[in-house]
Amino acid sequence: MMKSFSTTKHATIQMIVGLLLVLSSCYAQATQSPITFVVDDWCPYTCEPHSEKPGIAVEVINAVFGKDNVQFKSMEWRDAINAVEAGQADGLAAALTSDAPFFIFQKSAITTSTICFFVPQTLSWRYKDTTSLNDKNLITVEGFSYGEILDNYIAQTRRTNKNRIVELKDKDVAIQRFAFYQASENNVIVADNRVFNHQLQNYNQYQVPLKFHNGGCLVGEDLHIALSPKNKKRSLTLAHKFELGLQQLKSNGELAKILAKY
């Protein structure tokens, strides 16, 4: 009787150990290097990945997965979404859920993206709701999401009065934005607050300084990594690992240090 119990116990332990080894192997396969993320020029979230200040999202990704385990590909935003959707890369390094709602996201946000409206400093215009834009030309970027409310407004206005929605190409966005600023006081630039101010600071270093008035902002939206739906098992594993790592960065103060740099 004792021998039978001992044998059964030993077999159970072997089964548990075997199961753990299988799970460990599956996890390793699901997260094997390299982990590839696509970035566009959206500094300070995603800057030049190999520079001294690669961007908030890039630094967080490197801290969680390990710099040696991650590769970054640079491309324009619409191409980036298509590449990740097709499984040509693991994820977008920084995205709103409205950018690609069918992608896989981790639970917690890296930080918040706040979309604001910018007009020449000489104007007193303020954004209250979308009716504030009725006599304005809205300067947007092709393929970008600005949250549900503004996305719906843009889609509707594009159907009824498409000339009032200007969609810039993702390349050299800053130069295009500031050219429209100088073209007409009726133009309103919509952009992430951090990104716009970063672009303006860089532009003003080399050009005649421009001055803008922040006419108001939308409610901030959470910024995540967005993982490919093509390989769901791998993406879910990466999302789980990223969530755990992000929580650790928050608790030990490292995330706050990264944000403070930008």
Rank of each mutant, 00 (worst) to 15 (best):
G55Y: 01
F72T: 05
A260R: 13
N82Y: 03
E85V: 05
V195Y: 01
N163Y: 04
I154Q: 08
G91T: 09
E167P: 11
S124H: 09
V208Y: 06
A93R: 08
E48Y: 04
N163F: 02
T130A: 08
K162L: 13
S235D: 09
N163A: 10
K230V: 13
Y203Q: 04
P49W: 07
D79K: 08
T130M: 03
L168C: 09
G147E: 02
I225K: 00
A95F: 00
L259G: 00
P44R: 01
S4P: 14
I61H: 10
C217G: 05
F180M: 07
E185W: 14
V38P: 01
K162I: 12
V17T: 13
L20K: 00
I104L: 03
T131L: 12
K241C: 12
Q176V: 02
W125T: 08
F196G: 02
M1F: 10
N82G: 03
C26G: 10
L19G: 13
F102D: 09
P229S: 02
N204F: 09
R158V: 11
Q207T: 14
K3D: 14
I110R: 03
D222P: 15
M15R: 09
A256W: 05
T122L: 15
F242C: 06
D41M: 07
E85Y: 10
L138F: 06
A155Y: 03
V84A: 07
K169F: 02
T112E: 13
C116F: 15
Q106V: 04
H213N: 12
I35V: 12
V38W: 02
T112L: 08
S6Y: 07
R78V: 01
R177P: 04
Y27W: 14
S251D: 14
F196L: 04
L244N: 11
I139F: 08
T36S: 13
A63Q: 05
H224A: 11
S33F: 01
C116L: 08
L227N: 00
D90T: 03
S51H: 03
Y153C: 10
H10S: 14
N187I: 10
W125P: 04
T140C: 09
I115R: 02
N204T: 03
N186L: 07
V84K: 02
Y153L: 06
T111M: 13
Y27P: 06
V84D: 01
M2N: 11
N197L: 11
V38T: 12
G143W: 10
K73S: 08
V22E: 04
Y153I: 07
G216N: 09
A260S: 10
Y45C: 10
E48V: 05
K171C: 01
I56S: 01
D172Q: 06
R126T: 12
A11F: 07
Y181N: 12
A174S: 06
K136T: 15
R164Q: 15
N82T: 11
I104D: 01
I110S: 03
K211V: 04
I225H: 00
K233C: 03
R126H: 11
E142W: 11
K230Q: 15
